[in-house]
Write a protein that binds this DNA or RNA. Structure first.
Lengths: 107, 107
DNA sequence: GCGGCTCATAACCGCTAGGTCATGGGTTCA
DNA sequence: TGAACCCATGACCTAGCGGTTATGAGCCGC
C-alpha cells in the first residue's frame, strides 16, 4: 500500500490549494470576493457591507491575502483591496486538472 | 449601503457551497478524493493509504458525504465509497462561474 | 506637531475541527 | 447462535477559528 500521506491534515505544512480552500470556506470571505469582483474597494467600504466589526473584516482580508486571492495597496490613509483574478483562476485550473469530471469543464 | 450580509459566518445556516469548500479545505480529504478519482474503494482500503486511525478516516468520509462529494454504498460487510463526479464539478462551476477571470477558462 | 482619520494587531473568549481510544451495530459464516 | 470482521459513533482532548473590544501605527490637514 502506497502511503499517499506525504503530508497529512495536522502537519502544518500545507498545500497552497488547501490554503485557498480554507480561505473560501467562509460565507463572509466568499461575499468579500464577490464584492471585489465588481471593482476594488477600501477596507472601510467593505466593512460597510457587513454587520461585522472592522477588525473582523480586516482579519478576513488577511486570510484572503495569505491565500493570494486578493491584493492590497496603500493609497493615502486608505488601503485598497482588489481581486487577484489570475491567482483565482490558476487555483481553479490546478484543482480541476485533478479530476476528469472537472477537466471536461475547462477549455 | 446594501448590507449584503444575508447570512454571515457564524450563522449556523450555511450555504451548500461553503460546506463544499470546508470539505475541501483539508489535505487528507483532498487526498481521499484523489484516491476515489481513480476508482471506488472500501473504507478499509482508504484507511490503508494514511497514517490515521479508522475512526478519523470515517469522520472525514462523513464530512465529504455531507458535502455530497462522495457516495457510499453498503456491500456485504464493506462500505464502498465513490466520488460524486457530477456534484463536484457542479459546485465548482457554480462558484467559479461568478468570476470573469474564471469564466474565460470554463466552457 | 497635533488631532483625526483609516486600518492592523493584541488579547481574550466560546465553539468548531481534527485527532485519539473505546464501544456498538450490521453482516457473514461456521 | 456466536465469533469475527467492518465500519460508525460516543466521549474526550487540544488547537485553531471567528467574533469581540481596546490599542497602536501610518497618513493626512490644519
Amino acid at each position: 500500500m502506497p502511503e499517499v500521506d506525504s503530508m497529512s491534515s495536522g502537519g502544518r505544512d500545507e498545500r497552497h490549494l488547501t490554503k485557498v480552500f480554507k480561505a473560501l470556506s467562509d460565507n463572509t470571505r466568499q461575499e468579500i470576493l464577490r464584492l471585489l469582483e465588481s471593482h476594488q474597494r477600501t477596507v472601510g467600504e467593505i466593512v460597510g457591507n457587513f454587520n461585522l466589526s472592522q477588525p473582523t473584516i480586516s482579519r478576513h482580508l488577511s486570510v484572503l491575502k495569505e491565500a493570494d486571492l486578493v491584493i492590497d495597496q496603500r493609497q493615502g490613509q486608505n488601503v485598497i483591496y482588489r481581486l487577484n483574478d489570475e491567482a483565482l483562476s490558476t487555483s481553479m485550473r490546478e484543482f480541476f486538472g485533478q479530476f476528469r469530471s472537472c477537466q471536461e469543464s475547462l477549455r
